[in-house]
Computed example of a mutant assay.
Amino acid sequence: MSKLRVNAFTLSLDGYGAGPDQSLSNPLGVGGENLHKWMVGTRTFRHMVLGKDGGTTDTDDGFTVRSFENVGAWILGRNMFGPIRGEWPDENWKGWWGDDPPYHVPVFVLTHHKRAPIEMKGGTTFCFVTDGIHSALEQAKATASGRDVRVGGGVSTIRQYLEQRLIDEMHLAISPILLGSGEHLFAGLDMLKLGYRCTGQVATADATHVTIGRV
């Protein structure tokens, strides 16, 4: 049965999934890029995102590999797609990733402003959903053909699905840095009352990998 998953989503020690002042030059907010040291050197990240050879094949890479397995569709918040706010001024912005994004399946982008789907190289199609998280999930599951749907973020999008108890499992990578401010994943959420429990943890030099499931 298709699951709704969060994978390889990185938090700082103080719980932030992005730093403050996100912009075109700081897409993850000030200091946010430092969160992902655990992933950027892995063989999977280098191959799938950077199009390069080499990289580590350690525990961090294992979690990165699993994050892409059995994924038939993605859901992203608009901030994850780009820095533009309000109405789309034109059709020029097509995401952070160039002509061949690393998704290779349909990606449903939550937004308040209509836009036609964008077909990219490698099988990625960005579809823009204006009628909320439930509609995005319904469309994503229909497209995924029995495979899982991965929520890529950002923090606000994950929180919305958590509040509705729709996420089946999460893998969070806790990076050993402090951001001080930004977007906090768990602020105001009672994860126990929502029915979630920690199901495992593994520490590496650059992250503590935590898995959370719904019971």
Rank of each mutant, 00 (worst) to 15 (best):
A136G: 00
T64D: 09
N79Q: 13
G41L: 06
Q164T: 13
L172W: 00
H104R: 15
W88M: 02
E138Q: 14
A144S: 14
K37T: 15
P102T: 13
R165D: 00
T10H: 04
N26Y: 09
T64F: 07
R115Q: 03
V129Q: 08
R214L: 14
I177S: 11
A8M: 11
G153M: 10
G77F: 09
K141Q: 14
R85Y: 03
M39R: 11
R159C: 03
G15N: 06
E69S: 11
H134K: 15
G32P: 00
E69F: 05
W93K: 07
V151T: 08
N92K: 14
S181F: 01
L189K: 06
Y161H: 10
G200L: 07
L24W: 01
P83L: 12
R5L: 15
W74Y: 15
R43K: 15
P117C: 13
E138S: 14
G77K: 11
W74A: 03
A116W: 02
K3G: 01
P117W: 08
P20Q: 10
A140R: 07
T42R: 09
I212C: 04
R150S: 12
G54F: 12
R66F: 09
G98T: 01
F68S: 03
A142Y: 04
I133K: 12
A144Y: 08
A73M: 08
T199E: 13
P101C: 13
H171F: 02
K52W: 01
I133N: 11
E163I: 05
P106Q: 11
H112C: 01
G154T: 10
N7W: 02
V65H: 08
T199V: 13
